[in-house]
């Protein structure tokens, strides 16, 4: 009886709408069409993702993603949970390598140099990128040591240089005024928002080529979120930022380009304004207007 009702509902839904719904697309088993806006085609790409696929064991998480992320500004990756946007972000600095059963196909270029090649030194690659995670993850050491950690592991031990870099990073992360008197204190005693800004300072202290943000505000209160968003806008003047977010308003507020992903596929990629206001595809329109996802 229930199956019957479900089938009826589906039939009704199909009849009511003019365009085929997302549910239909899934039911038909068709892959999403990838729509890349014309403006995004000829940009100077920092990260060039070329037919990139990824499997966790037998499960395929990414399907032949093709994406050119423009230099400067913020690129947002949006999509419902489990759509592979975090996986894509973590593929850029090869953090997925830490999972045992990961297998990849296709290529990625970071400023023209390959990310997935047998002779790539993963550790050196990660040093070229900064990453900020969903949950603030300061290390159990002082604020100062936290910020200069990427420099320290790179073998930099000159006190003056470290101090200078620390100040620069903390100022850029809008945290300097709050912590300048207690750089020796434990970073774990900071508030959540402060910890996240500390993590941003840590990510930019070594001047990365790209800054990767994995839902940087999802564990924070609205006020801290606002501060981080302002900070991202400011940082994007100097760095290329790629940001994964659940929050569509945030993507609309902060980013210049937006990529919508669904079920491991890239659906639509274009300037943020046109994605949110005049999307080319109906699926995108339905998602950004909150009708599914």
């Amino acid at each position: 009886m229930t199956t019957q009702t479900a089938q009826q509902a589906l039939a009704e839904a199909t009849n009511r709408k003019d365009a085929p719904s997302v549910v239909d697309v899934i039911a038909a088993g068709k892959p999403f069409p990838t729509e890349v806006h014309a403006e995004m085609r000829n940009t100077d790409a920092v990260v060039d993702v070329d037919q990139f696929s990824l499997w966790y064991g037998q499960t395929r998480a990414l399907f032949e993603i093709k994406l050119e992320i423009p230099r400067q500004g913020v690129t947002a990756l949006i999509g419902p949970s489990g759509c592979g946007k975090s996986t894509l972000l973590r593929s850029i600095n090869r953090l997925n390598d830490l999972v045992d059963s990961v297998r990849t196909d296709g290529q990625m270029l970071l400023n023209g140099s390959p990310v997935y090649a047998p002779d790539v030194d993963v550790i050196e690659l990660r040093k070229r990128l900064g990453m900020v995670f969903q949950k603030p993850n300061p290390f159990p050491m002082s604020i100062f040591e936290n910020v200069v950690y990427p420099l320290r592991i790179d073998g930099e031990n000159r006190r003056g240089l470290l101090m200078e870099a620390c100040e620069r990073a903390l100022k850029a992360a809008a945290l300097w005024d709050e912590v300048k008197d207690r750089l020796k204190h434990s970073a774990l005693r900071l508030s959540g928002g402060q910890q996240q800004r500390l993590c941003i300072a840590r990510a930019i202290v070594a001047d990365p080529e790209v800054l990767l943000l994995d839902e940087p505000c999802s564990a924070l209160d609205p006020l801290s979120t606002l501060r981080i968003e302002e900070l991202i806008t400011e940082i994007s003047q100097r760095y290329t930022v790629i940001m994964v977010t659940h929050n569509m308003q945030q993507a609309a507020r902060v980013s210049q380009a937006t990529a919508f992903m669904y079920l491991g596929r890239l659906v639509e990629f274009g300037p943020t304004q046109s994605i949110f206001q005049t999307p080319h595809l109906d699926e995108t329109e339905q998602y950004v207007s909150g009708r599914f996802g």
Partner: peptide
């Protein structure tokens, strides 16, 4: 914490 450290290039 480990991920953070790996992310820094450690």
């Amino acid at each position: 914490m480990r991920e953070g450290s790996y992310g820094c290039g450690a």
